[in-house]
Amino acid sequence: MSYIIIIVSCVFVNNIVLSQFMGICPFLGVSKQIKSSVGMGAAVIFVMVCASACTYPVYKLLDKLEITYLRTIAFILVIALFVQLVEMILKKKVPPLYRALGVYLPLITTNCAVLGVTIDNIDSEYGFLQSLTNAFGTGVAFTLALVLFSGVRARIADCDFPEAFSGAPSTLIAAAIVSLSFMGFSGII
């Protein structure tokens, strides 16, 4: 039961993009088309789950050596290494998948949502399976926000804004409205 609560809480109540403000850069940068949103979202779900699986034992090791203050350095290295590795493996072994996800992979190293979710796993004191569930839910939340928002952007792309508002400001204000709608979920858990 607690797994369902973790997922619902990640996806709707505490949506990582719209209420925790992580991963805003790709949210604004890659959400121009639904197709690229789905690609980026899939890559993020994959990396988040694997990064959580990798950082869990790393943190246990740091904990044993009593150097948990090094977790930021250790985690970002694990994530960077992992992303690089996945990119190389996909390029060699699964070219179609690489073509679908490859472009988005380097963007993910510097995506604060990935580092954020691994730190959140530790701070919330989740076990291994709960960490994976949390990572999966957060990835889905990211994808959901991206896909929803790319739909909104397709609509506002042709609107006639005052010049100062065209581009980034109108996008941010649209994001405010999408975020407002997600506030409706607060309190369901």
């Binding site: 719209l18 209420s19 925790q20 403000f21 508002f165 980034a168 400001p169 109108s170 996008t171 941010l172 204000i173 994001a175 405010a176 409205i177 975020s179 407002l180 997600f182 506030m183």
Partner: peptide, 10 residues
């Protein structure tokens, strides 16, 4: 709230 953040930045 989060929504206000997006709005003010925009």
């Amino acid at each position: 709230m989060p929504a206000g953040g997006f709005f003010v930045l925009g």
